[in-house]
Write a protein that binds this DNA or RNA. Structure first.
Lengths: 114, 114
DNA sequence: GGCACGCATGCGCACATGCGCATGGGTCCG
DNA sequence: CGGACCCATGCGCATGTGCGCATGCGTGCC
């Protein structure tokens, strides 16, 4: 089996969580401490810590001590860039689907089915 | 919570499997029937069918009947493109890590630790 | 119609994952 | 040193996932 493929699968698995995506999205703006992330996203602090630990193990984020707090930042912006590319693609797809749905609704109004 | 974010998380979750990545990689070359995919990747046919069903539900692949066989093809090449971008990034990272490891080994040869 | 073929599906099990919760470890201050 | 703060970690539970296996459904051929 392919080495790079399993690595990619692991990274994708770590990325496949709305909360983790939110955290990355917040960190994309600026490095931030755990407490502020939890406060920003309205999440329990242990939960945020768990997600950060997972992403840290996957090499997606890095941590650095700052007094009593610990500041996290993106480790590999390129991965996030690829992630954003996919996000853009999905946004366009969603818009396309919404348009199709509107057309269907319009058609239903003009030519009722039942 | 964000609509697009949860959609992205679902797609990423579907993509976070080595076997599914392999299947997509095979389908990227050309549309193919279930049996041939299973034969190509040395996987049980029901297993391939299950993975295809998941990816079909996620809108990643489409199926089309061809006689007794069913041919699958990529539904949204753009998503796969984004996936390949990430793959390239990870390849470079892996190469970088390998180089660092080599340097470490070299350093160990020149300056033994124990 | 009977039959072989290709694929999908349902079931059951082993396993991993996310979460809340309580708690431990580290740091700064008085 | 004691205490407040910030964060990480361990535990238990509910839930989800992948897989093998057997089987059902549709198609084409004789």
């Amino acid at each position: 089996m392919d080495e790079i493929t399993s690595l990619q699968a692991e990274v994708l698995k770590v990325l496949s969580s709305p909360k983790r995506l939110d955290i990355l999205h917040v960190l994309q703006a600026e490095p931030m401490e755990v407490g502020r992330i939890a406060d920003e996203l309205r999440l329990p602090q242990p939960n945020v810590s768990q997600h950060l630990a997972v992403m840290r193990a996957a090499g997606l984020v890095e941590s650095e001590r700052a007094g009593r707090e610990i500041r996290y930042r993106l480790a590999d912006p390129d991965v996030i860039v690829a992630c954003n590319v996919m996000r853009g693609v999905l946004e366009r797809r969603l818009a396309r689907l919404a348009r199709v749905a509107d057309n269907a609704r319009m058609h239903e109004l003009l030519v009722p089915v039942s």
